[in-house]
């Protein structure tokens, strides 16, 4: 039986949350098409963690271990995955829209000669064909796309298909991989963690973002405090104005030339809401804006708006959140 292919990404021997989401999305498609979910995990020392994917709906989890897969290899992963998809004749292939997934999935698609769409936020079956919904033009338009042949390849945006635990426990099988690092033209030498392994803004369920309204880099402490109040669930985001000014690293930038995010909650403090910023965050489920200017365009997209001085409001919000979660 063909089945839905789901690529599960790991980091430091652990299955990443985006991978649970990819398997959850695959489960939904498999149920609609009456087929199975086949998850593939590649790495070294990952067999233990891989079993958990069954809980999110994988019928079979294939674990391919190799010393050369200790770190990501675009060429090595592409070879193993495209052979797997060809051999199993998978109906659809899903990847996380993470930095690894977006590097790997188009390469796999090109190897297979398949169509590819990235950052998918919806997947449904229409008349037997899988139709994906994705934002385009910085979220100004939504596009529905379908494959015209071959195994369609999609990358799935984080925080959209929230992981659903499934009663079924999938079986774990070994995938034989024979790869040689000497064949790779690109090798990851090192992974440098940003400041203290923080939760990435691209994947956090809650984002507290600050803009020029913070007034100074030191004042970002107010934003960091509110994020910390959520107990490790929130990441700090930034507008381009403060990244360009050197107050925050580019990794935190949200918007057209930064990250595109879809958290459950986005709190924008001292951000005016320029179109290029909105491009990055308008698919957030709830938007809360704090701005002293009642005319600020951010209020047009915010679900809740607070007109006032962020210097007073941010600490009060942090206190309330701490009380609520205590």
């Amino acid at each position: 039986m063909p089945g839905i292919f789901a690529f599960a990404e790991t980091r430091d021997g652990e299955i990443r949350k985006v991978s649970q989401e990819v398997v959850t999305a695959a489960r939904k498609l498999a149920d609609a098409l009456g087929t199975e979910v086949h998850a593939v995990v590649l790495g070294s020392g990952i067999a233990g963690a891989a079993a958990e994917l069954g809980r999110y709906g994988a019928d079979k989890v294939f674990v391919g271990e190799a010393a050369a897969f200790d770190k990501y290899s675009a060429e090595g992963f592409t070879t193993v995955i495209s052979s797997f998809i060809k051999e199993h004749g998978c109906d659809v292939a899903l990847f996380p829209a993470s930095s690894l997934g977006k590097d790997l999935a188009p390469r796999v698609a090109a190897r297979l000669g398949s169509g590819y769409s990235s950052d998918v936020i919806g997947l449904e079956v229409q008349g037997g064909a899988v139709v994906a919904t994705r934002p385009e033009y910085g979220g100004k338009l939504l596009s529905q796309v379908a494959a015209t042949g071959g195994t369609p390849v999609f990358s799935v945006r984080a925080n959209v298909f929230l992981p659903v635990e499934n009663a079924k426990a999938g079986t774990v099988e070994t995938l034989n991989v024979s790869v040689n690092e000497a064949d790779f033209g690109a090798i990851v030498r090192e992974i440098k963690a940003g400041a203290a392994e923080k939760l990435d803004v691209g994947e956090a369920g809650i984002i507290v973002a600050g803009g020029r309204g913070l007034g100074s880099p030191e004042n970002f402490k107010l934003v960091e405090d509110l994020a910390a109040a959520f107990g490790g669930k929130a990441a700090v985001g930034a507008s381009r104005a403060v990244v360009d000014a050197g107050w925050r690293p580019h990794a935190e930038q949200v918007g057209q030339t930064g990250k595109t995010v879809a958290p459950t909650l986005y709190i924008a403090a001292g951000i005016s809401g320029a179109i290029q910023h909105l491009a990055g965050m308008r698919t957030a489920r709830y938007i809360v804006a704090i701005n002293k200017d009642p005319e600020a365009p951010i209020f047009k997209v915010a679900d809740y708006g607070i007109v006032g001085d962020l210097n007073e409001i941010l600490p009060r919000m942090a206190d309330e959140v701490r009380k609520m979660l205590a």
């Binding site: 934002p135 338009l141 796309v145 015209t148 308008r282």
Partner: peptide, 19 residues
């Protein structure tokens, strides 16, 4: 390998409440 079937505008976010 893929075709666009339909483009649409995202549902306008309603301007929220000032709380």
């Amino acid at each position: 390998g893929v075709e666009t079937r339909k483009l649409s505008y995202p549902s306008e976010r309603q301007a929220g409440r000032i709380v």
